[in-house]
């Protein structure tokens, strides 16, 4: 019995030593190749499950949504009219802006370089991460901002491997992004709420934040550009005893439905 226990302990310490060695190798960047092999082996199944998931959740979502279609349609029609008016107005503003730039002698605003990436996995356990199929080979580096279509902020690159990267979502509690409300220009810090949503914190208690207001990135984070859309203010949480108020934000992106993202280069 004692011999069995002894051999078990020896096995345990050998395994422990191997894991510690692997952690050291990873720290020195020597595990990039095994990580790529592991992903290469898993990618056919990842793609297969993604297709299955899209099929099942697509039809399920359709059945769930069918009873609300009329209501949603009416809402979308009215929003469409509002957006049509807004787009027309903004086109005029853009033209005016262009003319003013020419008159003052400022060049055209710089076009940002983007790299498109496919979302290959989503890991909400121990942090909120997505895996994307672009890595160091495509010029991706840590901390670059990741957006969905229409400049909706998704998160930032947290780890880069040769052919894939991990993106920390803004819904993760460790993610901190400096933000500003679009109309009232109130600054705050956007952080995740344990994967349950997004919060804007550090808003001065006397500031008047309006529900429904759009929240944008303020550009104070070094690698996250200004004016990326974070979401809309859903609820303002204010306590008289606190010096700051906070707001729950409805993120512009549905993180578990992301298929493609763009990495923004500064």
């Amino acid at each position: 019995m004692k011999d069995i226990d002894k051999s078990k302990w020896i096995k345990f310490f050998i395994v422990l030593a191997v894991i510690l060695l692997l952690i050291f190798f990873n720290f020195r960047g020597l595990l990039s190749a095994p990580k790529s092999w592991a992903l290469f082996a898993a990618s056919p199944f990842l793609k297969l499950f993604q297709v299955m998931d899209k099929g099942v959740s697509g039809s399920w979502a359709f059945f769930l949504a069918i009873k609300d279609l009329n209501k949603e349609n009416a809402g979308l029609k009215s929003e469409n009219q509002f957006l049509f008016e807004e787009v027309t107005r903004l086109k005029e503003v853009a033209r005016e802006n262009e003319l003013l730039r020419q008159q003052i002698g400022i060049g055209q605003a710089e076009q940002q370089r983007l790299v498109m990436a496919e979302v290959i996995g989503y890991n909400p356990t121990l942090g909120q991460y997505i895996l994307i199929d672009k890595g160091a080979k495509d010029g991706i580096t840590v901390d670059l901002a990741v957006v969905a279509a229409n400049n909706f902020l998704v998160g930032r690159v947290a780890e880069v491997n040769a052919n894939f990267s991990k993106v920390l979502l803004i819904s993760d509690s460790d993610s901190l992004v400096n933000a500003i409300t679009q109309d009232t220009r109130i600054s705050g810090v956007v952080k995740g709420n344990h994967g349950l949503g997004v919060l804007m914190e550090m808003i001065p208690i006397d500031a008047q934040v309006a529900v429904g207001e759009t929240v944008l990135t303020s550009g104070l984070n070094e690698t996250i550009a200004k004016n990326l859309i974070v979401g809309r203010v859903e609820e303002v949480i204010k306590k008289e005893s606190d010096i700051f108020q906070s707001a729950t934000i409805k993120a512009a992106v549905e993180f578990d439905k992301l298929e493609q993202v763009f990495i923004l280069f500064p």
Binding site: Y122, N123, P124
Partner: peptide, 27 residues
């Protein structure tokens, strides 16, 4: 074993997040 493991990893990264409830995901 390797095949089962790969299937589990792929399912964990694609299907399981949809079964999340209050920040708890089946692992």
């Amino acid at each position: 074993i390797f095949l089962i493991s790969i299937l589990s990893v792929a399912a964990q990264l694609t299907l399981m997040p949809h079964l999340s409830f209050l920040a708890a995901t089946p692992n």
